[in-house]
Design a protein around this nucleic acid. Structure first.
Length: 649
RNA sequence: GCCGACGUAGCUCAGGGGUAGAGCGUUUCCUUGGUAAGGAAGAGGUCACGGGUUCAAUUCCCGUCGUUGGCUCCA
């Protein structure tokens, strides 16, 4: 007999060889029907794996992430079998479950897979699913595993197996299909009722661009057809929040092929919105002791040779600009920090004057690979809400924490409550990627982790994601389609002060090296506005939105009064405009709703007679009649409830 | 940069070897209206660009540019 501990702490004795599904059946028939995956002693097991020792067992259904993972992992086996059947000779590589669905990387040889092929694949996969084939794990010797895939002429699987220990290799069979697999399956293929191939993409073998490019087939599957329909509807909804679509509709920004790819053009409404964001941050930064500086868009090549950026990125950047007569070389600035270092060198500072916090909305230019450009989130010319803090070693900890406060203030003021924090440190296997002494790196990494902990941030540590000159703390936010983007960033840098030979005079009357913090709470204006658009669906906070109200006269007779109303709204510092077109009110309201104006101010005979406004809230219907003052109060109280001022902690 | 898809009017999109169509927008006229589309008429396109095949290409083929889904990259 063995003793099984269930998640609620209950311990039950079973004969040796009992399976997770047996245990489930013992609890209830319903659970047994729904269990699709299990963990025993914190290791993935099949629902039919005989348990032969004491341990804790967790059972999962579709409603658990772990259950979905098993479901999608199993579905990738089905996809692989369908592809093998439809395209004999394909070579399978890897096929994991992902956050939403699964993919399989396949070598199709010279064949190109396209959307037209999807329905056939889906049909084949569903046919396999309907066969209700059991997933069966079996252990294979390394020698047999290698022989199996060598016979299939599959160098990818052979390479995978070569990296495994003999005795630790398992195959999974279902129907006539076999795959190298670590396990974690649903009981049988029949549980998959809906199957959709979502898209295809190229993907390098093992993520290495020097190795063969495979075809990645993305798919998703569900236990009910209805779930698939709902998922596809969700995707459609998400597309409506795409910042590229909303940016066009709301006339915030555009791109021109003639200006160049990745070079955004801000339209008047977008520029005004961006200006308000900048003012918002400037106000908080002033509070936090920052001083604004300004630096030019180009700098001598030598500046970036000194900073180390030229050696690191020079070949992959916009190439130097040459002066016609002297043949001097200038670079389009890819970063503001070297300029700010030179600003710090204007005169020697005493330790009493530190920290120096130099801030600039600095526009930088980087040669991003063409395939990487994406709306406003990845561009070649963008403006960072940059600042560099020059401080003593003693001040680093507090300064870093104050920057975290400012960053969180920015995120929460704009309604980003689902950010994740990421601490990026060195890749221990690639020390050559980084510059600076090991000692300084260790200090900087410790300082960041310490500050993040003290601020109670829920963060993950990502080895290998650090910048080449130092570790960083990034705030990540997902877009409408679930892709993660870095917004705010805070970076510790011991390196640039060294390279630029920055010094200050300490209390001991000796010269010392300051530490630098690079930080940008928005990250870049472009990316921030993009993510904000996707998060709000274009319904910006009232303080930020391009136009807060639109005045709609009922007919031409009311136009004069409407103009008067507009003036008085403007006098109350409400951003408003007048729609005086000869259209019906119904049409003007419809268009104002679609245009996402927060308030519609309707004026006709009645309002003219008693000097009021009729107010309608975007998406909220008629609010009734109000005086201009009452409306202005409504607007300002909504603004003050969403926009708090920054408090130094 | 790599793999796949896409590029038709200002916008959203249909069409397809015989030089083009809808809705919205825009212009003009009529209508003067009360909380999500009043009516009529007109203008507007080298079908991204460059080659090729063909009697004929916007349509088929190749290349370039751009956009897009991923991969790689991301100071």
């Amino acid at each position: 007999m063995i003793e099984i501990t269930l998640p609620d702490g209950k311990k039950v004795r079973y004969p040796e060889g009992v399976t997770p599904i047996d245990v489930a059946r013992d609890i209830s028939e319903g659970l047994a029907r729904n269990v699709i995956s299990a963990r025993f002693n914190n290791r993935k097991v099949e629902t039919v794996t005989p348990l032969v020792e004491d341990g804790s067992l967790v059972l999962y259904t579709w409603n658990d992430d772990e259950g979905k993972k098993a479901f999608w992992h199993s579905s990738s086996h089905i996809l692989a079998q369908a592809l093998e059947q439809l395209y004999p000779g394909v070579r399978l590589t890897i096929g994991p479950a992902i956050e939403n669905g699964f993919y399989y990387d396949v070598d199709f040889g010279d064949r190109a897979l396209s959307e037209k092929d999807f329905p056939a694949i889906e049909k084949q996969a569903l046919e396999i699913a309907r066969g209700k084939h059991d997933f069966k794990m079996r252990e294979v010797s390394k020698q047999d595993a290698l022989a199996y895939y060598r016979k299939q002429d599959n160098p990818f699987k052979v390479e995978l197996i070569e990296g495994l220990q003999d005795g630790d290799i398992t195959f999974c069979d279902h129907d006539t299909f076999t795959d190298l697999c670590r396990g974690g399956h649903i009981p049988n293929t029949g549980i998959v009722k809906a199957f959709k191939v979502l898209n295809v993409a190229g993907a390098y073998w093992r993520g290495d661009e020097k190795r063969p490019q495979l075809t990645r087939v993305y798919g998703i599957s569900f236990p009910k057809q209805k779930d698939l329909t709902e998922y596809l509807e969700l995707l459609e909804e998400a597309k409506k929040r795409d910042h590229r679509k909303l940016g066009k509709e709301l006339e915030l920004f555009t791109f021109s092929q003639k200006v160049g790819q990745g070079l955004p053009l801000w339209l008047p409404k977008g520029a005004a919105l961006r200006e308000r964001l900048e003012q918002f941050l400037k106000k908080a930064q002033k509070q936090a002791g920052y001083e604004m500086v300004v630096s030019p868009h180009i700098g001598q090549k030598e500046l970036y040779v000194t900073s180390g950026h030229y050696a690191k990125y020079g070949a992959d950047s916009f190439q130097p600009i040459h002066t016609p007569k002297e043949d001097e070389e200038f670079l389009l600035k890819p970063m503001n920090c070297p300029h700010h270092c030179e600003i710090f060198k204007v005169r020697p500072f005493s330790y009493r004057e530190l920290p120096k916090r130099y801030a600039e909305f600095g526009t930088v230019y980087r040669y991003e690979q063409s395939g990487e450009l994406h709306g406003l989130t990845r561009v070649r010319g963008f403006t960072q809400d940059d600042a560099h803090i020059f401080c003593t070693h003693d001040q680093l900890d507090q300064e870093f924490k104050r920057v975290i406060d400012l960053s969180l203030y920015v995120l929460t003021s704009l309604g980003f409550d689902n950010y994740t924090a990421q601490v990026s440190v060195r890749d221990p296997e690639n020390p050559d990627k980084y510059i600076g002494s090991v000692e300084n790196w260790e200090k900087a990494e410790a300082a960041i982790i310490n500050a993040a902990r003290e601020k109670g941030l829920n963060f993950v540590i990502e080895p290998g994601e650090a910048a080449f000159y130092g570790p960083k703390l990034d705030f990540m936010v997902k877009d409408a389609l679930g892709r993660q983007w870095q917004l705010g960033t805070i970076q510790v840098d011991y390196n640039l002060p060294e390279r630029f030979e920055l010094t200050y005079k300490g209390s001991d009357n000796e010269m010392h090296r300051p530490v630098m913090i690079h930080r940008a709470p928005f990250g870049s204006m472009e990316r921030f506005v993009a993510l904000l658009l996707e998060h709000t669906g274009g319904n910006f906070p009232l303080w930020l939105t391009p136009m807060q109200a639109i005045v709609l006269p009922v007919s031409e007779k009311h136009e004069k009064y409407a103009e008067k109303v507009l003036k008085s709204l403007e006098n109350h510092e409400i951003r408003a405009l007048l729609d005086a077109r000869a259209e019906t009110v119904g049409k003007k309201i419809r268009e104002a709703e679609l245009g996402k104006y927060p308030f519609m101010v309707i004026v006709g005979d009645q309002e003219m007679a008693d000097g009021t406004l009729s107010v309608r809230r975007h998406g909220g219907g008629d609010l009734g009649s109000l005086s201009v003052e009452a409306f202005a109060n409504l607007v300002s109280s909504e603004i003050s409830s969403t926009l708090k001022s920054f408090e130094l902690s």
